[in-house]
Write a protein that binds this DNA or RNA. Structure first.
Lengths: 252, 252
DNA sequence: CGCCGACTGTCACAGGGGTGTCACAGGCGG
DNA sequence: CCGCCTGTGACACCCCTGTGACAGTCGGCG
């Protein structure tokens, strides 16, 4: 029986991405709000700005498309009922070339509209009236999804852990970790800076409660250090916490 | 773990066709539906199956988590009100280790719930009662984000995969791949650089959940390597990820 | 300052498990 | 009827892994 020992990334979210994926970690999201109703537009702009976004606004589909091309926002909040070209069409035109997240905003709550909206390429569909904090939550959810897909690897100095490829590289070249070593490193890297006891590591990596004392964890840590550390005898990544266990130090 | 009274149905397959549906955006989505209400669960399972998904179901949070670990679905539809651990908690636990899309499903439409739900890591939040076609549209919208826009042809060194022509060439001349070999290579190439477990590959290429251990995948990989690799005994394209499965390396 | 105990690092080795490989039989279509 | 593809089981090999013993190190205490 071939038990898969390490969590495998779901197949539906592939590794790299070729589209432009803006909105980095930490950076302030830059939104484009396209809405023709002055009151709603101003109100939402204010609310979203308060919640920490940068907001550009447009009052028509044409303006919206133009502004989109100029400014390259991270996300678009798009009203459906617009004079001229409507929201669905704006959405489709943008989707012909770009992949950025689009949230449709509408007063119509017909199910068929939801389906049409989502099929024209939108990522979410929100019905007015909407609480600003709800819209904010949905914006963050959509942005979060994008970040997840583009960055599923973490770096510790020159050591890079790629969870999708299930590989660990150091100075760009592949470290040939064994399955157990990889699991150990993945579990440690899931909680950077946090000390994990041998007991915890046994449960997490070996999946059995082991009360007896053996040098199992130590031996595996040693082998891992031999591959990961610059100077295995003076480890800087996988630190020993005396009396407790081990801890993976985040990069300085 | 305590035995849960409600039986867990592993997988229901949308009947009928099993042709080469690798052409466009790939395989049938595999969903996990976690919902304790029998009527709703059965209804949604039927509806989603009709819409072309493969669906596994669970009636409690515990069952859901267990099934999730076993089956590795592409997406989870998760009821919030569950006996035992609730949907929010299930969501958070899954998010501790995995990135797959999660859609929360609930009868409560309080704004605060939406915010809490999305912040616990969900990708979308749908209020019951929901039209199956709306849920389907939202599922597809969420999955669409994760799909890499795969071009019609991609090159891996001297090996060129032409999705339109459904041919694979090496150094310009046609490799006569068998249907299964072709599907395997196409599935791998849809996620370059991502390690896929044998179980995932069985689901994607052979479309059945096979828990027993046979050398099926290995044998097919071997045959594929014999045709694709320069030195089949030292593969550079289809790499083995020990303890996990296989991975198609993107060109350097 | 030095001793002592407890904890940790290190290593070699034997056993086991995962993977590559192959041959064969059944299935399916030409 | 024939040939190709495909799934299966067997088998060997190699690497991984757990274990125990021992040495080295750290901290505490007198």
């Amino acid at each position: 029986m071939a038990v898969v020992p390490v969590p495998v990334r779901p197949v539906s979210d592939p590794g790299g991405d070729s589209g432009l994926r803006v909105g980095q970690n930490g950076a302030v999201p830059f939104l484009l709000l396209i809405e023709d109703d002055d009151a709603i537009r101003t109100g939402l702009e204010l609310a979203l700005t308060r919640q920490g976004h940068r907001v550009a606004t447009a009052a028509s589909g044409e303006d919206g498309l133009r502004l989109f091309k100029e400014q390259r926002p991270d996300l678009i909040v798009l009203d459906v009922m617009l004079p001229g070209i409507d929201g669905f069409e704006v959405c489709r035109r943008i989707r012909r070339t770009d992949q950025l997240p689009i949230i449709l905003l509408t007063a119509r709550s017909d199910d068929i509209d939801v389906v049409v909206g989502l099929e024209s390429g939108a990522d979410d569909y929100v019905v007015k009236p909407v609480q600003p904090r709800v819209l904010d939550a949905r914006i963050r959810a959509v942005l979060r999804r994008g970040e997840r897909e583009s960055s599923d690897s973490s770096a510790y100095g020159t050591v890079v852990i790629d969870r999708a490829a299930m590989t660990v590289t150091k100075d760009g070249q592949d470290l040939q970790l064994t399955p157990t070593e990889l699991r150990l490193l993945l579990e440690l890297s899931r909680r950077p800076g946090q000390a994990l006891s041998r007991q915890q590591l046994l449960r997490l990596v070996w999946e059995h409660d082991y009360l007896g004392d053996s040098r199992l964890v130590d031996a595996c840590v040693q082998r891992l250090r031999a591959k990961v550390e610059d100077v295995p005898s003076a480890p800087t990544l996988i630190r020993t916490v005396r009396g407790v266990g081990y801890r993976l130090d985040p990069p300085a």
